[in-house]
Simulated assay, not measured.
Amino acid sequence: MSSARETVERMLAAGRESDVDTVVELMAPDGYIEWPYRPAGVPGRLQGREEIRRFLTQAAKGFIRFDEYRNVTIHETTDPEVIIVEYEAHGTVVATGAPFQQVIIAVFRVRAGLIVSYRDYINPLPLAEALASIKPA
């Protein structure tokens, strides 16, 4: 069984690569992903593997392509299940070619090698700006 840190490192790599299958595989069957701060149109919470798979499959079709994560800092806490990660996501808005940068703090709870909760505290402004830059076809 992987440590909580190893599980989170695999999740970060899968997210950067838009590897939906691995993201779903790393989630507990009833696990959830939350975005407490988000622009309109982004759900606040996805619960369970199938709901996560549906949303991420649609999202992976090319809104934003992540090229790299920079300044990644992983904090292990006094609770062995909880990992906090700070990082910058750099990529491209696919429809416009514009650069995209997002600062993220994520809080994970990992139990028995699976993520039971993933709270993604993104800055919603870059995502809102990227959404606004895309003209409907």
Rank of each mutant, 00 (worst) to 15 (best):
T7F: 13
E81I: 00
A40E: 13
E81S: 12
L26Y: 09
P99V: 03
K135D: 10
I52F: 03
Q102W: 02
A13W: 00
D67Q: 13
P80F: 06
G48N: 03
I104V: 15
G48L: 08
A137D: 15
A112D: 15
R5F: 05
T77F: 02
F100H: 06
V116W: 09
Q101N: 09
L125S: 05
E34D: 14
L26S: 12
A128W: 02
Y87I: 03
S3I: 09
E50N: 10
P136N: 09
I33M: 09
A106N: 01
G91V: 13
P36N: 08
N123H: 06
V94T: 14
H75K: 07
R119W: 01
M11H: 13
K61E: 15
Y32I: 00
V82H: 07
A112T: 12
V24I: 14
V20T: 09
V8M: 09
A59K: 00
R53I: 13
A130T: 06
L125N: 04
E51A: 15
M27E: 02
V42M: 15
L26I: 13
L12F: 07
G48S: 06
I104E: 13
F108E: 05
G41P: 05
L127D: 03
E88F: 10
L114R: 15
R5Y: 05
T78H: 10
F108D: 08
Y87L: 15
E81M: 03
G113T: 13
R49F: 13
I84H: 05
I84M: 11
A130R: 02
V93H: 03
V107W: 05
F108H: 11
F100G: 04
E25Q: 12
Q47G: 00
R119I: 11
R70G: 11
F63P: 00
E76A: 06
E17M: 08
E50R: 10
A95G: 02
A106Y: 00
T73Q: 07
F100M: 05
D30H: 04
E76T: 08
M1K: 06
A89Q: 12
Y121N: 10
M11N: 11
P136L: 11
Y37W: 06
R16G: 14
G44Q: 07
R16H: 04
Q101W: 01
H90E: 10
R119F: 02
I33D: 00
L46T: 03
S2P: 14
P126F: 14
V107S: 10
P124A: 12
G15S: 11
Y87K: 11
P36I: 06
A59G: 00
R111F: 05
T96L: 03
R10F: 08
R109V: 09
R49T: 13
R53D: 13
V8C: 08
P99K: 06
R109T: 14
E86R: 03
G97D: 05
F100R: 02
K135V: 15
Q101A: 15
I115C: 10
L56P: 00
Q102Y: 01
D30F: 00
G62C: 11
Q102L: 15
T57H: 02
T57Q: 10
Y121I: 07
R65Q: 11
D19W: 12
A89F: 06
E50Q: 12
E50L: 09
T92H: 03
G41D: 09
R53H: 10
R111Y: 04
E129T: 14
S3T: 15
A4Q: 01
S3Y: 02
Q58I: 09
D21P: 07
A28C: 04
Q101D: 14
E25L: 08
